[in-house]
Design a binder for these strands. Structure first.
Lengths: 342, 342
DNA sequence: ACGATTCAAGTGATCGTTCACATTATGGGT
DNA sequence: ACCCATAATGTGAACGATCACTTGAATCGT
């Protein structure tokens, strides 16, 4: 009807049009207190007429609550951890919060600075970091600080978020492969500023040593398929490596393809095992052995922890993250040694 | 030193401590106007002492600018389109905006409603939707509305964002396969509320008809590997389909594996082609033929369009999205007919 | 018919910042 | 010593909502 107003309608304008006070409209929007039917009608009409929408910024300014939590992730991640994020978002939603995702680029140092800016902005009630932030640790919300929870499988000091399930699975993997006759291993690691990557690497080295097996070393260094491909295609022909443990499925897929390209059959000549159980892992050829991490429950309990920190409630019982070894076609018995030793 | 203050320091507190007016501190924070060296020193000291951080909410309330754009995506997407998002975020960053990602769950109807809420919240200066929003279309920013750009390969009315590169590639695919002797095709489609999925399906049907080839129909319906697997494993043994065109790489990977499981060699018995050129597509076995969509430039120009809408500038020249057919190991000549016809 | 009680709605301050404007130093020329 | 331009800083009102109170209208028992 009327020409476009110069700006969005405010509470006061609605109130004026409805012939009531601004406070009445505010109460109406929050379903507080009883109203006379006539009032309801007039206010509703005015809201509709002006196409009124509450200004969240003004509201947040007064209440100091935004209802928004952010999940932040480092950018150079091959694929965003969708199931983790989805589970976290679902928990947030059910608790009345909205979760947004902020991708923070750059080296670890920069990331911590940008994360601090987010924490200080006052725009967020809590921040869930996927991946470690150098020099920062979990903190509850106070009038001066925004709550921060860190999901990095383990926090920086390896104080367990749940038991060290991570490590135990790696040992199980190596034991299983050893039982199949494998003696010489290779680890393709992830970026070492991820504590989950560090934990896998460390447990790999420890298990190899404790079980009296041989390691041909550690390669890789980021989370990409290319890196996995390079790790295997760069291997000497006589390396005698028969089993490869990759820090994630992308690395493992690259490794499988590299083996294929140099005519090393997987698993007859080389066994490969990944980590994460990507949605496609059971459909690849050969189907990829991997570690299924319960990413849903991981995301869920991290978000529950964050919300407890936001509300200054005691931390909820953390769900035990269950990491489960899944053997598929990419692993098998070690090949018979090319030239028998005795 | 001092005990934790009841709440974060404000401009006024800094000003009081430094012995200047709040406005001087504000100016200082924005590098406006010259200052006496002594003033600079005192203000800097006060900011440090109180660990002052400007409250972005209060600032936004006054300036009506938040510097924040959001990319929204529907949730049931197998993997977030990382390259697109990264490119978009980079453009935003360079233009002085911060891009956050909001995942909106639920059916198309709900999504549109939630998107509208985001648009109305006042928290965002612009919204970039990946995927169509029923009943909503691109709009510039006005005092009462938030800018909205939609990236769905093509917008709802198929008014080309750039030329219909999409379609032309599909025709090229079919022509190429026909040249290799293929006569009977199958399309595995994506969800039809995505206009890109619709465009692929429509062009598939049109090309088949115009080139005088046969279609065994259309299967699929979402973007998942499972769906692709089911499409092929459900195929009759005597379907005579020799070429499968999937609407994305996940569907294609499922199709390849299903073929493998029923002992249909890819590509000797069945050629499969995907869409998107996933990072892993060139490493799968067999390496997947696919369509490389320039997702970076797609994300980039969508974000440039959004920023122009936010600033009420004329729309920038859209970069021509170049879709390029990449033939790898999963496609090959059609098999000789099992029983020669003449 | 009147005071007490509950119902319904109104008033003005406030959150922390920026805007528009007013005011007070400072220094140089005559 | 005075004026004036410019440098440097100060003042108070917005922004649009909510909070903490206060006030006026209806209801009811006696």
């Amino acid at each position: 009807m009327a020409s476009t107003p110069p700006r969005a309608a405010t509470l006061h304008e609605v109130a004026a049009l409805a012939g009531v006070s601004h406070q009445t409209v505010s109460r109406f929007l929050h379903n507080r207190g009883p109203f006379k039917p006539a009032t309801i009608e007039r206010v509703e009409a005015a809201i509709k007429e002006l196409n009124y929408r509450p200004n969240m910024i003004a509201r947040s300014m007064r209440t100091r609550e935004t209802g928004i939590l952010a999940a932040i992730l480092p950018s150079p991640v091959t694929a965003l951890p969708t199931p983790t994020l989805a589970a976290a978002a679902e928990v947030a939603r059910r608790s009345g919060y909205f979760m947004e995702i902020s991708v923070i680029e750059g080296p670890a140092q920069d990331r911590a600075r940008r994360a601090q800016e987010l924490l200080d902005s006052g725009r967020l009630e809590g921040v869930l970091s996927l991946g470690a932030l150098p020099g920062m640790s979990e903190q509850p919300r106070t009038p001066t600080t925004t709550a921060l929870a860190i999901l990095d499988q383990y926090d920086d000091k390896l104080r367990g978020i749940g038991p060290l399930a991570d490590a135990s699975v790696l040992r199980e993997i190596i034991q299983t492969l050893a039982d199949m006759g494998h003696r010489r291993f290779l680890h393709i690691e992830g970026p070492q500023d991820w504590s989950s990557a560090r934990a896998r690497r460390d447990e790999y080295l420890r298990s190899i040593a404790e079980l009296g097996l041989e390691s041909h070393g550690v390669r890789g260094g980021d989370w990409t398929t290319e890196s996995g491909y390079a790790a295997i295609s760069g291997l000497e022909e006589d390396s005698c490596v028969t089993a490869v443990i990759a820090a994630n499925d992308y690395l493992a897929l690259g490794a499988v393809r590299a083996a294929h390209d140099r005519c090393w059959h997987v698993p007859k000549r080389l066994s490969v095992i990944g980590w994460d159980d990507l949605a496609t892992a059971r459909y690849t050829i050969p189907a990829l052995s991997t570690v299924a991490v319960d990413r849903e429950s991981q995301g869920r309990s991290a978000m529950e922890r964050l919300i407890a920190l936001v509300r200054n409630e005691p931390a909820p019982e953390p769900a035990n993250p269950v990491s489960r070894l899944i053997l598929r076609e990419s692993t098998g018995p070690a090949p018979a040694p090319p030239n028998p030793q005795r």
